[in-house]
Design a protein around this nucleic acid. Structure first.
Lengths: 180, 180
DNA sequence: AATACCATGTAATATGTTACATGATTAT
DNA sequence: ATAATCATGTAACATATTACATGGTATT
């Protein structure tokens, strides 16, 4: 059995959230909104859009402004496919392909200099991330109505903030213990 | 520039931690010890071992018990390569290819039934994971000496436990709020 | 009209997964 | 001796990344 494809469902979800979206804008979503959970380059997106169109999940219309540009919108069948996917419960936790953990794993000596170095760097990265996430919560969810109308998005942003804070806290505690 | 390969360094680290290890045992590590951070099947491992041998990172010796079996050990050059990799600081946070977050992202309505369903399932998975991780901390790090001699491993196990606990806590709080 | 960027597309390469395959070893 | 598992290896397929490519559009 081939590995389950996820990318088409993500693209379908994006199109559902943004009717009349272009391939370029979909690609941009992977660099911003969804960027924290998934990545895809335009060379993946365009062939996928073709397949989805051929399967009747989406339809397209030509732009009046730009000869190449195409606007994609989800079809009734596409809605069905998306909802069927959303209805399926998650069966496994994801694995965290995490270089930080991986490198630590191979360092055996408690007093190896590289442990505090790796932690210090990770803290820098996580604080930058936390800052970015909190910024987004403020700008994207400025009013209560936006929260109610994009509740799932709001939840995962909140969750990401909480998770990042937790990681920072753990690292800072560990950092202190190492100094003793 | 091609994407940076990580698998060979992981395998190198495994061989460094377990001299005279076989390909089969290396593959097994990906299903247990390292399984939380990285996955690799035997069809990836064996060709990689060949390449690493050709590059002089490891050497092998034949088993006396089994005609096919080979024991791999790291070379001086391999040590250099591994340490050079470990010395390099991490430059980016990993992305979390997380179906749970992804599905939530596409659910807009605050009262959509699927939100509590997804959360309930995620809680089951996380509690199972927490149980497994705590079990491992008890069995693998039964005494203080093991901790000191595998400090990096101990750290990331502790970190994984803390992270999982944090996620469970956040989900349970969110679950309560949704019930109100 | 020269330059930068937009918008899409494809080719070459790298990586990963599943399935297929062989013969050795162990357990019953 | 038969079945299950060990141990390695490869082939076919699926997916992902990087680089290359084309022509349109907007800016100066």
């Amino acid at each position: 059995m081939p590995k389950k494809r996820i990318l088409p469902f993500i693209i379908l979800g994006i199109i559902n959230n943004h009717p009349q979206i272009t391939g370029r804008e979909i690609t941009a979503e992977f660099a911003t909104e969804i960027g924290d959970f998934w990545k895809a380059s335009h060379s993946q997106v365009y062939p996928e859009l073709k397949r989805m169109f051929n399967d009747g999940w989406i339809y397209d219309s030509k732009s009046k402004n730009n000869a190449k540009e195409r606007y994609y919108t989800i079809t009734a069948q596409g809605h069905e496919v998306l909802n069927k996917w959303l209805d399926q419960l998650v069966t496994d936790l994801p694995i965290h392909e995490d270089l930080f953990s991986l490198k630590l794993f191979f360092i055996k000596d408690q007093h190896d200099e590289r442990i505090p170095q790796l932690i210090a760097r990770q803290l820098i990265l996580l604080k930058k991330e936390l800052n970015y996430l909190e910024q987004r919560r403020q700008t994207v969810f400025a009013n209560e109505k936006t929260i109610q109308n994009n509740y799932g998005h709001y939840l995962i942003l909140t969750r990401a903030i909480s998770r990042t804070q937790g990681q920072i806290q753990w690292l800072e505690e560990t950092q202190k213990q190492l100094e003793e």
